[in-house]
Amino acid sequence: MNIFRLFGDLSHLAAIAILLLKIWKTRSCAGVSGKTQLLFAVCFITRYIDLFLHFVSLYNTEKVMKLIYISASVFTCYLIFFKFKATYDGNHDSMRAEFLIVPAAGLACLINTKFDAIEILWTFSIYLEAVAILPQLFLISKTGEAETITSHYLFAQGSYRALYILNWIYRYHYESHVDTIAIVAGVVQTILYCDFFYLYITKVVKGQKIVLPA
């Protein structure tokens, strides 16, 4: 564990908490893409499937973190699609998730480190996570704006994988550890946030709201 990965995971936890708080406090999921949250839930379940297969006692933080990620993302989906369904902006959350899931699944079968079920599920989860934020970014471009709290969520969500890139550089240099698939997907994922990062840093930090087109 290194400082980059630690802050990366904390940033990821913060993102999940910010979104949950936003929906719970405002009792509304306006401006939130339910599809992105569904895709994230699928990512966690397929990536941490080993939790369900051979359940090992929750003896370390990693197991606890995995369970937190899975339960929090499923609970967020429950809030969006059931509890606060009336506030779900289905018309603007219109990006076809199948266009993300099918290519990720296909690519996972073609490019992977080992052709076995768990490894392919893990690879699928990595590829899917790289593009899972697209419906959310698409929704913001359709509505033309993002609530400040949603911008903070996106900033934390984007920062988590950006910090993981620093973690991979660190691990390459000090542990000569390389996981090419995770690195390539993580770089793609972070690049997708660049436009948002620019808007966040030039606007939200100064107290303005993000309104598109910028």
Binding site: R5, D9, H12, E62, M65, K66, Y69, T113, K114, D116, I118, E119, W122, Y164, N167, D179, A182
Partner: peptide, 10 residues
């Protein structure tokens, strides 16, 4: 079980 290259990150 064979020691598959474990993914040790979240």
């Amino acid at each position: 079980q064979h020691a598959s290259k474990k993914h040790d990150e979240l």
